[in-house]
């Protein structure tokens, strides 16, 4: 493939992605992620080291924040 063609291919692929369908899903996942991280940062103490929770929340889509909410938050 010619290097000059790459932008065209990228544009073609982007046009194929059904944004109307995908964007709501992305927004919901983003909210979940943001809420989890804001909570993690504000919290003085968590169950287990904070940096580990950060990796879990960022590394595991959907599952990470949920696991954090269930077992990571330590009640004040």
């Amino acid at each position: 493939m010619d290097i000059a063609q790459i932008p065209d291919v990228v544009a073609e692929l982007t046009a194929m992605i059904p944004w109307k369908i995908i964007i709501p899903v992305m927004i919901l996942e983003l909210i979940l992620l943001t809420v989890a991280i804001v909570d993690l940062v504000k919290r003085t103490e968590t169950n287990g080291p904070k940096w580990l929770w950060l990796i879990i929340i960022l590394g595991f889509n959907l599952v990470g924040p949920v696991v954090y909410f269930i077992i990571g938050r330590r009640p004040h």
């Binding site: 919901l28 909210i31 979940l32 989890a36 909570d39 959907l62 909410f69 009640p75």
Partner: peptide, 16 residues
């Protein structure tokens, strides 16, 4: 405990 935030979101994602 933020349950009213994350539980609805997770259920919506699960369903769709």
């Amino acid at each position: 405990s933020l349950k009213w935030v994350w539980v609805p979101i997770v259920f919506i994602l699960l369903a769709i």
